[in-house]
Simulated assay, not measured.
Amino acid sequence: MKAFFDDRQSKHDPKHFMANGAVLPSPEQPERINRLRAGAEAAGCVFEAPEDFGLGPIAAVHSPEYIAFLQNIYSRWRRIDGAGDEVIPNIHPANRSDGYPKSAVGQAGYHQADTACPIAEHTWEAAYWSAQSAIAGADCLASGAPAYVLSRPPGHHAFGDLAGGFCFLNNSGIAAERLRAKGLRPAILDVDVHHGNGTQGMFYERADVLTVSLHADPERFYPFFWGFAQERGAGPGLGYNLNLPLPRGTGDDDYLKALQTALMRIQAFGCDALVVALGLDAHVDDPFKGLAISTPGFARIGAAIARVGIPTLFVQEGGYLSEALADNLTSTLSGFQNA
């Protein structure tokens, strides 16, 4: 299986993370790259660097206002007397229709949903090349070959104009839109432990991309405000979004049952390209402790996806530092390829 990654993706090295009022080291560390790459190579992946496809495929799903913010906010932030080393919001609008300030502080609050997406000197560069890797993967799939994309930083919490949860550019959404522009009919299957709220928001009123997410129930789990079963899409997109929230601690067998429901909906959509937003943080030993999938369980997930018979692109989302991280990726990709 072909795989895509650019070394510049390692330049993003966030220092700030807040949980339950405590400031902690960020779980989204560059070391994830080393472990994920090792896991992919153990499954037979051969990596290559993406070419530069430019801003067009990114701007197809992200607003120019937001892109300009990501490109420029760090240099603007550094001009603030006494500013911290990373761009971290301390105020947010009540809704997206409130005023748009000129202040860097105000715009940070507008475009960053939480404190888990700090922006530093190389964040835009890393996010840009993470997205380019996803675009290369989409083109590979469109040419007839499945692929794996080591997209880091991840993307599924990024809306069209809003960063959040370690995410800046929505790599899975960018890939799906790239496939759609090439005449394909894509669906996005998100198996991260956290709901793909940015991806849902990006396509919520559209009928040309199906979005499906299996995740820990958001009633008591990030992202808290999205991911409930009653969220089915709106306007032309009504019925084109499916959320399958699962009880905390759900293990392999019950997860596989829910996955079958997800795959049946994807088949009903009649898609000819499947983007899997591949979160490995559903593992029992992941630091976030949301679900309890075993390493062999990931092989079963990969095999179930393969049996549907839809050309598939895997785009890396979550999965944080644990002894099992590389093995979980190997298990997923091997299960898919050996089904």
Rank of each mutant, 00 (worst) to 15 (best):
W77G: 07
W77Q: 04
R78S: 11
R78Q: 15
R79M: 12
R79L: 12
D81H: 13
D81M: 15
D81S: 15
G82N: 12
G84K: 04
G84W: 07
D85I: 13
D85R: 04
V87Q: 11
V87T: 08
P89T: 12
P89E: 05
N90A: 15
P93C: 07
A94F: 11
A94Y: 11
A94M: 10
N95C: 11
D98K: 13
G99F: 13
G99C: 11
S103R: 04
A104S: 15
A104L: 02
V105M: 13
A108D: 02
A108M: 01
Y110C: 13
Y110Q: 13
H111Q: 06
Q112Y: 03
Q112V: 15
A113N: 09
D114P: 07
T115I: 11
T115C: 12
A116S: 15
P118E: 00
I119G: 04
E121K: 07
H122I: 03
H122N: 09
T123H: 06
W124A: 06
W124S: 01
A126K: 08
A126G: 08
A126I: 03
A127S: 12
A127N: 00
W129R: 01
W129D: 00
S130K: 06
S130Y: 12
Q132E: 07
A134Y: 06
A134S: 14
I135G: 09
A136G: 08
A136F: 00
G137L: 06
G137E: 01
A138V: 02
A138H: 09
A138K: 09
D139V: 14
D139F: 12
C140Y: 03
A142L: 13
A142D: 03
G144Y: 00
G144T: 08
G144N: 01
A145E: 11
A145N: 09
A145I: 14
A145R: 07
P146D: 12
Y148A: 05
P153R: 06
P154H: 10
G155C: 07
H156E: 08
A158N: 03
D161L: 02
L162H: 05
L162C: 13
A163D: 08
G164V: 04
G164T: 08
G164F: 02
C167P: 08
C167K: 02
C167Y: 03
C167W: 01
L169T: 02
N170H: 04
N171Y: 07
N171G: 07
N171E: 00
S172G: 11
